[in-house]
């Protein structure tokens, strides 16, 4: 499989007054053609910033270093004009809050038509037809009527469908979905995840699913990357990561998650302590202070995500004694 997106040694730093906050630390990852990669981590793990950096969408006080190749072409810190030919057309992004991705003062139809006209060079009539077709694809009820509505007139689940329609209108190679179901009710979440799976199958679009929810990632993704404190700590196929997790953090996350199979009589195994501070760069493993297996070496030396590309790997000294 060819890599559609190759991220190499990406670092993202924010200037926050007199300090520097590092959100992403020398991260490397690949997204292959047609695959769905789940990027899982807690708040502050750097999962969103990684992809905002790749698309040149970082905040003003942020800097990105490293390399991001899209089909072999360097796009990190590329000029805006070059990125505009990719964003929305080849690579689309769907956010947690669909309101922030939609223009609140324009009717739904107008926003979809604009994208069709700009990126696909359609005329007004063709664009209208395309807009309607997209709303049907994402199975919005009464699509014709919805074209004339404003975003605020739709429910959260319907807005997310419109966002996905907008993202998919140019049949992008890559859809980056950042917590697309986090703000939605469970039954609506199930609808949207089903829709993403279907679009992926039908359009062969690669999907990056950014989520804090391991269970959501398990249902949709082929491969999983677990992030902690700006670095990947484990990477493997979904099955490998869920059935044979290697990193103590991944194991801790899975153990702390109540499921329908959990015995309610037994206390959950919580991970002690707090998520790390992005202002501090630890010398050794960032998870060391919360890890039950911590050794001297974990404090002094940073473990690397070993293994060759595509293999199940974890950044932990326990695995390379």
């Amino acid at each position: 499989m060819n890599a559609l997106l190759e991220i190499r040694d990406l670092s993202v730093r924010f200037d926050v007054g007199d300090a520097e906050l590092t959100a992403v630390r020398e991260l490397s990852l690949d997204v292959a053609e047609g695959e769905c990669l789940g990027v899982v981590g807690e708040s502050g793990a750097g999962k969103s910033q990684t992809f905002l950096a790749a698309l040149g969408l970082l905040a003003e006080n942020a800097r990105a270093e490293g390399s991001v190749l899209y089909r072999g072409r360097e796009i990190l810190n590329a000029p805006r004009r070059e990125l505009n030919t990719l964003r929305g057309r080849r690579i689309a992004m769907v956010f947690q809050d669909p309101l922030s991705g939609l223009t609140s003062t324009l009717r739904i139809g107008r926003q979809l038509e604009e994208s069709a006209r700009r990126h696909l060079g359609m005329n007004a009539r063709q664009a209208r037809g395309k807009a309607l077709e997209m709303l049907e694809t994402v199975r919005l009820p009464d699509p014709e009527h919805c074209l004339d509505l404003y975003p605020f007139e739709l429910s959260g689940g319907m807005r997310q469908r419109v966002m996905i329609a907008l993202g998919m209108i140019c049949r992008p190679d890559l859809l980056i979905a950042d917590e697309p179901t986090t703000a939605l009710d469970v039954t609506i979440q199930a609808q949207i995840l089903g829709l993403l799976a279907e679009l992926r199958r039908d359009a062969n679009t690669s999907v990056v699913l950014i989520t804090h929810d391991l269970a959501v990632a398990a249902g949709l993704c082929d491969r999983i990357l677990i992030m902690y404190n700006g670095r990947p700590v484990e990477s493997g196929t979904t099955r490998e990561v869920f059935t044979a997790p290697k990193h103590p953090y991944t194991k801790g996350l899975l153990a702390s998650l109540p499921s329908l199979a959990t015995d309610p009589a037994i206390d959950l195994t919580a991970i002690p302590g707090q998520p790390p501070d992005a202002l501090v760069t630890p010398r050794g493993c960032a998870f060391a202070e919360r890890c039950e297996h911590v050794m001297d070496r974990c404090i002094s030396e940073r473990p690397l995500l070993g293994g060759t590309r595509g293999r199940h790997a974890a950044a932990c000294h326990l695995l390379s004694p």
């Binding site: 009820p141 429910s155 689940g157 319907m158 009710d185 469970v186 039954t187 609506i188 979440q189 199930a190 609808q191 995840l193 089903g194 829709l195 993403l196 799976a197 279907e198 929810d213 391991l214 269970a215 959501v216 398990a218 249902g219 949709l220 979904t238 099955r239 869920f242 059935t243 899975l254 998650l257 499921s259 329908l260």
Partner: peptide, 22 residues
């Protein structure tokens, strides 16, 4: 509709989710 941390239960099951809006 509960997503389970189980790679064997894919979103294909989820597609049968409850239709419609509240």
């Amino acid at each position: 509709a509960i997503p389970e941390a189980d790679p064997d239960r894919g979103p294909h099951d989820m597609a049968d989710a409850l239709p419609g809006e509240i």
